[in-house]
């Protein structure tokens, strides 16, 4: 890594003052990618906990008894498509097309809300089938993992809507397109975590 960075630093030397950073890269973007790197260790820990405990159901239902694969497949698909709409929002923001940016941001937030709504429905259904938070090690670790993911999606929705409001009122400090891009990175990360959860937790039986 340092070799890449040093080459950049040398390039920077030759035209001093052209860029404000040693690498020519944006602070926020470096910080965001690093943050996403650290989030891997957070979700990794939660997924490992689930993997360890998925078979320990006690007297409660087994995973295969409660999971509704067709339903979750649809909500997974919805989240996946929200990544497409998000990337279109970022693309529009780079082209300074405010109308499209706003539109795609709202659609992304709506798709995200659909996903979270589906999760609320799923949790309620599980609860009604006798799988509460503290029923078994399986249920606790399942709810903690998917709950954390759901909170991440919810935070993402709030950011998307707040961003839309700020864009509309011209209140975004700093670069508009970069702000959209950063929230986009976060949103995609939440999506890739779900790609893993969908396979490891739902599709592969305990």
């Amino acid at each position: 890594m340092w070799f890449t960075l040093d080459n950049l630093a040398t390039a920077h030397d030759t035209h001093e003052g052209a860029a404000h950073s040693s690498t020519g890269l944006s602070n926020v973007k470096l910080g965001m990618w690093l943050f996403l790197g650290t989030e891997c260790l957070l979700f990794g820990g939660l997924i490992s906990t689930y993997m360890l405990y998925r078979g320990r159901v006690g007297t409660g239902p087994r995973p295969s008894q409660v999971f509704d694969i067709p339903f979750t497949s649809v909500s997974s698909f919805v989240l996946l498509m929200s990544s497409l709409t998000m990337v279109l929002a970022v693309s529009a923001a780079h082209k300074r097309d405010d109308r499209s940016t706003n539109l795609w941001l709202v659609i992304t937030a709506l798709l995200g809300t659909t996903f979270v709504g589906g999760q609320v429905y799923e949790f309620t259904a599980f609860y009604n089938e006798g799988m509460g938070f503290s029923t078994s090690l399986f249920s606790s670790s399942f709810f903690v993992l998917t709950g954390f993911h759901g909170v991440h999606v919810t935070v993402g929705i709030i950011m998307l809507l707040a961003l839309r409001g700020m864009l509309k009122n011209n209140k975004v400090p700093g670069s508009r397109s970069e702000t959209v891009e950063m929230i986009g990175l976060y949103w995609h990360f939440v999506d890739i975590v779900w790609i893993i959860i969908f396979t490891l937790i739902y599709l592969i039986p305990a």
Partner: peptide, 23 residues
């Protein structure tokens, strides 16, 4: 998703380093 939607394939290698180190 990481390479295309998140642009990592087209972006500076430093971003890839930071993210994949964590992963």
């Amino acid at each position: 998703v990481v390479s295309y939607f998140m642009h990592l394939k087209f972006d500076n290698k430093v971003f890839s380093w930071l993210f994949y180190t964590g992963l």
